[in-house]
């Protein structure tokens, strides 16, 4: 296989957790709920996803569903504390981050215990699409991937159509921009915030489960390695819109693949500096772009319909 084709194929493969986690973040944010627990939710998703598959003898579907349920529970907690109890979103987000991180290791230790060799689950196989996968270059890159790659692409498309071309999507955006106006038009603001936060967190949980199911076949402590935090940055770059988030995740995935390749082959730079690349690149890209980005006007704030004016 040509180097360029292989690189592109790996980028598409590496894209998935970024896309899922960032679209999940975007969904909640569009309703005004700024989730900062991604890293914890992804870790919990990775742990539960792995354990679900491991205990059922390698049933990845069951693992993935469990990871989504786990993510959904975190989303429910976030929505309840912020929307119903009107508590600060960052504080609750950090608390959930802490709990997710602790829970991921605890569950793994309770179920598997300490072993010399890590228990393994089979990793997700490629599912070549009939016909399409025979197209030269494009077929290899786009249509000979695992099912979650297709899902990530379709999800981004669907979210774009939903947000900009349907009534409920417009209502969701209104809730994140001006909940008072949305409320006066009869949109159920609380319900919107709950739904968006829960479904977004389910995607984040699934993003976590992708790591053991595709990369490693097992769960290790802290295996998310900052991807949750990077996906917040990615959501900002993407201006909280699904199509730009998808394009941005191409960049994040490319940097990760590049860092990995350079680490294996070596270029005369100590590998530790290569591993810093994704984080340094993220900070550098934020420099010129951050100010100009569009964010939902009500992001990170809680709506209280009994208050007279929005500060």
């Amino acid at each position: 296989m040509d180097v360029f084709v292989l690189f592109s194929k790996l980028v598409m493969l590496t894209l998935v957790p970024y896309v899922l986690a960032s679209q999940g973040t975007m969904l909640g944010g569009r309703a005004g709920v700024f989730n900062v627990a991604q890293e914890g939710i992804m870790l919990a998703g990775a742990s539960v996803g792995f354990l679900g598959a491991y205990l059922s003898g390698g049933n990845l579907v069951q693992g993935a569903l469990l990871a989504m349920v786990m993510g959904g529970l975190f989303g429910l907690a976030l929505a309840y504390f912020t929307t119903t109890l009107k508590m600060d979103q960052f504080v609750i987000g950090l608390a959930l981050f802490f709990i997710g991180l602790a829970l991921s290791t605890l569950l793994y230790k309770l179920v598997v215990g300490v072993t010399l060799t890590p228990p393994l689950i089979p990793t997700l196989q490629e599912l070549p699409l009939p016909g399409l996968s025979h197209i030269p270059v494009l077929g290899e890159v786009l249509f000979k991937q695992n099912i979650l790659v297709y899902l990530a692409i379709l999800l981004s498309l669907a979210l774009y159509v939903f947000l900009y071309h349907t009534g409920p999507g417009m209502a969701l955006r209104a809730v994140g921009e001006n909940p008072m106006a949305a409320d006066s038009l009869g949109v159920n603001v609380s319900a919107m915030r709950y739904l968006a936060t829960i479904s977004g967190s389910m995607l984040i949980g699934l993003a976590g489960a992708y790591l053991p199911m595709v990369y490693t076949g097992t769960f290790t402590e802290g295996m998310v390695r900052g991807r949750g935090w990077l996906s917040i940055a990615l959501t900002f770059f993407g201006g909280w819109s699904p199509h730009l988030i998808f394009l941005g995740s191409l960049f994040f995935a490319a940097v990760e693949v590049l860092a990995f390749r350079v680490q294996v082959t070596g270029v005369g730079v100590p590998y530790q500096f290569v591993l810093m690349l994704p984080y340094v690149a993220t900070i550098l890209v934020m420099l010129p772009t951050f100010r100009r980005l569009r964010i939902p006007a009500f992001l990170g704030r809680n709506y209280d319909r009994e208050r007279r004016a929005l500060l």
Binding site: V36, G226, W229, F236, T282, L287, F290
Partner: peptide, 14 residues
């Protein structure tokens, strides 16, 4: 630049 400090402080950890 007004860049969110949660993000940058975390990235500096890595």
């Amino acid at each position: 630049f007004g860049i969110n400090e949660i993000l940058t402080t975390v990235l500096m950890n890595f």
